[in-house]
Design a protein around this nucleic acid. Structure first.
Lengths: 184, 184
DNA sequence: TACACCATGTAAGGTGTTACATGATTTG
DNA sequence: CAAATCATGTAACACCTTACATGGTGTA
């Protein structure tokens, strides 16, 4: 599977970058559906280099600071193109710790349920606001009219993230509503 | 964090079960937000037993087949209750391989995009139908009027899963719509 | 009597997190 | 000049999957 491999190849294909840049990308745009720490990224870059899917050039920044700027190879592009067209079975549903707690709702009393759901709601609303700001920024600065473009890719995943968070919020509100109205 | 620990404690708290039963539960109801293989469950059961959070009784089924039926202890109940009330920061967004592909949309042509999104749509629609059938069954056989009950827990997580899948489908349709209408 | 299902476990390896470790550059 | 950020790496450990390994029970 090696999914991190393709996440990295895809990003480096967009434009050459360092391991540090990749880490930052995973914290920004991709953060709404993928993430990885630098401790996982650096070894993977080493592996991809050994497999001749990427190459690097050492660039000196300032006096001494060495950066490794990675570029995708033809072989890397081929593998990436091949992966993107693959038809794979649906992944198992992602794990959700809050829903695990919600499932065992019988362990809480009414007040405790309302407290837990309200706290989750506040966190999700905050997250949704951040995503919405990112979307506003994207629409202001980028042209998404061409569907075969990086910008359109950025747009659809952000759109998906906003829709997902909004639905999670709707679900939380619905649960809260039922609980609040119950006589228990 | 040992989340599997609490998933198992919660299930055994509902009623005593074997490792095999737990595995089956993770494939059914909980499947919409949690899962684990038996190879992970058996070692965890051993660990929880050593920690005195659960105990087991060996039951002979038929002539020789030995089953270990696990029961939660008072200590286990306390830990579970304590965990369920905890306030933890939002988990990082779950990884989504399809969205990773969608993000790198610039690597596909219009036909390929439509093919990939249509295939995903078909799989998600099938999954949604299964979830809806499960909900129909649940509403027919269980009483969810008491919010402090296992049945209500079953209901809300299933409801959440249906909403999540419906939104994913809406997103896929919206993407397909934009792509289909594009002149590219 | 074969096949599906019940039942429990271990081993090897891949994936991911936290912590350890070090040093340079930029900005207030 | 201190703090934030840039930059790269390794080690230990936790988590999770795939495959290996074994045997019993129910049913068509």
């Amino acid at each position: 599977m090696r999914k991190l491999k393709y996440a990295i190849l895809g990003l480096i294909n967009r434009k050459p970058m360092t391991g540090y840049d990749l880490t930052a990308e995973f914290d920004k745009a991709l953060g709404s559906f993928w993430h990885a720490k630098h401790s996982q990224i650096y070894p993977e870059l080493k592996k991809l280099t050994e497999e001749n899917l990427i190459t690097y050039e050492t660039v000196i920044h300032g006096e001494k600071l060495e950066k490794k700027v990675y570029t995708i190879t033809e072989k890397g592009k081929q593998e990436l193109k091949n992966w993107i067209l693959r038809d794979e079975p649906l992944e198992p549903t992602p794990k959700d710790v809050f829903k695990l707690r919600a499932y065992f709702i019988e362990l809480m009393n009414k007040e405790e349920i309302i407290l837990q759901f309200s706290r989750q709601l506040a966190k999700r609303q905050k997250k949704l606001e951040i995503l919405k700001s990112a979307m506003e920024e994207l629409l202001k600065t980028k042209d998404i009219s061409n569907v075969i473009s990086e910008e359109f890719g950025d747009y659809i995943v952000l759109k998906g993230a906003i829709m997902r968070e909004q639905t999670y919020i709707d679900w939380l509100k619905e649960c809260l509503d039922i609980v609040a109205k119950s006589s228990e």
